[in-house]
Amino acid sequence: MTTPTQQLSDAGVSIWLDDLSRGRLETGTLRKLIEEKNVVGVTTNPSIFHAAITSGTDYDHIIAAKAAEGASVEDTIFEITTTDVADACDLFAPVAAATRGIDGRVSIEVDPRLAWDTAGTIAEAKHLYQRVNKANVHIKIPATVEGLEAITATLAEGISVNVTLIFSLERYRAVINAFQAGLEQAKENGHDLSKIHSVASFFVSRVDTEIDKRLDKIGTEEAKALKGKAGVANARLAYQVYEELFATERWGLLADAGALPQRPLWASTGVKDPAYPDTLYVTELVAPGVVNTMPEKTLDATFDHGVVTGDTVSGTYEEANATLDALEKLGVSYNDVVALLETEGLDKFVASWKELLADVEGALASARKAS
Rank of each mutant, 00 (worst) to 15 (best):
E35L: 08
G28V: 00
K66H: 12
F303I: 01
V39Q: 04
D192G: 11
Y242W: 15
Y276G: 05
T118I: 10
N292K: 05
A11T: 05
N45D: 08
P94H: 02
G362N: 10
V175K: 01
A367E: 15
D311C: 08
H50L: 10
E188D: 14
S314W: 04
S55K: 15
T323F: 10
S9M: 06
V207G: 01
L148Y: 10
E344S: 09
D84P: 01
G219W: 10
I108N: 07
K297R: 12
D60W: 07
E149M: 00
S14E: 05
T83I: 02
L299H: 02
E222H: 02
Y239E: 00
A65G: 07
K187H: 13
D208S: 07
D10Q: 15
A97G: 02
G258D: 14
I34P: 06
R113P: 04
F179M: 01
G70P: 13
E109M: 01
S47Y: 01
D84G: 00
T298M: 01
T248P: 13
W116D: 13
D212H: 11
L364A: 03
T57Y: 08
V39N: 04
R31D: 14
A367L: 09
V338M: 11
A174G: 02
G289I: 01
F92D: 00
A52I: 12
A225T: 09
N45C: 06
F78Q: 12
A200R: 03
D75L: 06
N38D: 15
K217H: 09
A233T: 10
A370T: 15
E222L: 00
V40C: 09
H61A: 15
G258S: 13
V360H: 01
G310K: 12
L25A: 11
V137C: 13
A97D: 13
A52S: 15
S9L: 14
T118W: 02
P4L: 00
E355R: 08
A223L: 02
V350C: 05
D208E: 02
V95M: 02
Y281F: 14
R171I: 10
L254W: 05
T99W: 06
K187D: 08
L265E: 02
A123D: 12
K229D: 01
A363P: 05
S47V: 03
G28C: 06
I159P: 08
T81V: 06
T99M: 00
T293Y: 06
G258E: 12
P142M: 06
K224F: 09
Y242R: 03
H197C: 11
D216F: 12
T209P: 04
P295R: 03
T343S: 12
L30Q: 06
L193T: 07
T29N: 15
S333M: 02
P288T: 00
A156D: 09
A259W: 10
G70F: 13
A351G: 08
S14Y: 05
G182T: 13
Y276W: 14
L324K: 11
A230R: 12
W353L: 03
D90E: 09
I139R: 03
